[in-house]
Design a protein around this nucleic acid. Structure first.
Lengths: 208, 208
DNA sequence: AAGATAATAGCATTTTTATGCGATTAGGTT
DNA sequence: AACCTAATCGCATAAAAATGCTATTATCTT
């Protein structure tokens, strides 16, 4: 038996979900509230919550703000966001704050049921459009008007990302520190930056 | 009509997929080969390839190596990996190299068909276990024995990640440059580092 | 042959970072 | 009351980074 909690301020949807999930014999909705504040007031009374399905747009504290506080108190509860928001910002913030899944509100009850089963099987349910936003995050973004770094320059960048000083970069690549300086000059020119920090950030953002 | 290409060295699976997809009236398998080399030899003859479904474990050049070369020549073709490999390394490399979806080989034909439809609708099909690996990538990893940064210190970190100098950090937070220095000292002590570069890297790795 | 680019290296100078030491104020804990 | 932490600020100094300028060699393109 899987214990499920809901935070959803759309009463109609909340009751529909509650009914549908309780109708499944393997699930039990043990808590169903309309706000994060409500959840914090009542969750201690529940012996176990396996899965929490929550909205982002809530009255009072929103779902994304509430998420880290919930995960702090219930680290073993898997949280799935169920929301109309499909902008990247909200998706990534939710994931960073501890969500294990992200479903859009046009998801069918059937698919929500399957999503819960996926979570229990160690997976992450994700509406395809949300998955695309995450996948695109990994795709290198070609910056227009930005010159391609040479192989050697990319090696220097990797060393900088590793946190090495000019001296240590020189040691790693067996070149003089002045050559390192020279390469870094070229890198800064090509990337239009003027400090290591920006190079490292661009590297992590996939802009190199 | 959607044109589909396959690279799959398991002949049985390859022919099964080919038959199944051709049976769907909205799909047409326009190229079906058993290696990347084969693909490169024959893809020019095909007028259009909308979707490429490919394996990773191939004879000769493997799927991950072949991927960037394929995307270079066919930037508008959406690539879905279909493989038995579920290790994070292969998943992330595939995404970085341009894959738009990642399915495990236990995926049903029915689900593969749905995955193609998801791609066409601008989504990214993803087996739930693969999605979990990607989601986990965003979850902050609590480092044992690492002290929690204060709110102010986190603001400083954000400013450093943005590439600001001490002086500009001071301006942004309306404090003196010496206070910035002091905060950065505390941050370095808590994170066990001794330069901005490492702080920025830790931040992007989710270790803060 | 001339021109462009990548990789190497040196020297000088200014700016920024990293670090040592000390200090005050405010808020919370024991 | 004594103690701790977060946040603030100052001064000093050594190390590292950023930048300006020059120069050689090799390779590749036109």
């Amino acid at each position: 038996m899987t214990n499920i909690a809901l935070i959803e301020d759309d009463i109609e949807l909340k009751e529909l979900l509650e009914k549908y999930l309780n109708f499944q014999e393997q699930f039990k909705v043990v808590l169903s509230v309309i706000s994060a504040e409500d959840f914090f007031a009542k969750f201690m009374e529940i012996e176990q919550i396996d899965i929490l399905i929550m909205d982002i747009g809530l009255p009072g504290m929103n779902g994304i703000e509430a998420l880290p506080k919930i995960k702090q108190k219930l680290p073993n509860t898997e949280v799935v966001m169920l929301t109309v928001h499909d902008d990247s910002e909200k998706v990534f913030q939710s994931l960073k704050n501890g969500a294990s899944g992200y479903l859009l509100k046009n998801t069918s009850l059937e698919t929500i049921k399957e999503s819960i089963e996926q979570i229990l099987a160690g997976g992450s349910p994700m509406s395809p459009n949300i998955a695309r936003k995450i996948v695109d995050h990994f795709h290198p973004k070609p910056i227009e008007g930005q010159k391609e770094l040479s192989i050697r320059e990319k090696e220097i960048v990797l060393a900088l990302v590793d946190g090495l000083s000019y001296k240590l970069v020189a040691d790693r690549l067996k070149i003089s520190i002045d050559t390192v300086r020279q390469h870094i000059r070229s890198i800064y020119r090509k990337l239009n930056v003027n400090c290591k920090a920006e190079v490292i950030s661009k590297s992590y953002k996939g802009e190199i």
